[in-house]
Amino acid sequence: MTDTFIMVLSTIGAVFILIASIGILRMPDFYTRLSITIKAGTLGIGCILGAAAIHFSEFSITTKVFAIIFFLFITSPVAAFLIARTSYVTGIKLWSGTVMDELKGRYSTPKVSSKESTTSSNKNIE
């Protein structure tokens, strides 16, 4: 019974990771790639580590697994938000099939929107 459960859970996790990797290979632009990969990968790893926790079924190991899943769920959205914002500011193009872009024009002149930090860094250089 426990063995079957471990098999099913680890297979589901592996399939989610496979979907994330196929998604990162064949999605058309950077933003769709990012929005698929980070979350599908996180869910898959949650399933695999859950299988490990069931297999060992000890208090300390279950705590460790909970800690790993918690770290991943806290940190991966932060990383995704930072890299998405950076890529928009540095001017990575959206896919041609994009329906609407309401952020357009906000960063067309990057020097304006971030005046303070630009001037401060210029001062440092001078």
């Binding site: 471990i6 680890s10 996790g13 990771i17 994330a20 990797s21 990162i24 950077f30 790639r33 990012l34 990969t37 980070i38 990968g41 996180t42 898959g44 790893i45 695999i48 580590l49 299988a51 490990a52 297999h55 060992f56 000890e58 190991i61 460790k64 790993i68 991943l72 991966s76 990383a79 890299i83 950076t86 890529s87 540095t90 990575i92």
Partner: peptide, 28 residues
Amino acid sequence: VDRVVALDLLITVGVGFIGLFSLIANNA
């Protein structure tokens, strides 16, 4: 940025790989 995201996902999948390996080796 594409490379950075791919690197991040490589590390994240590596975490799952290690978890699976600890299951196979039966060593926590």
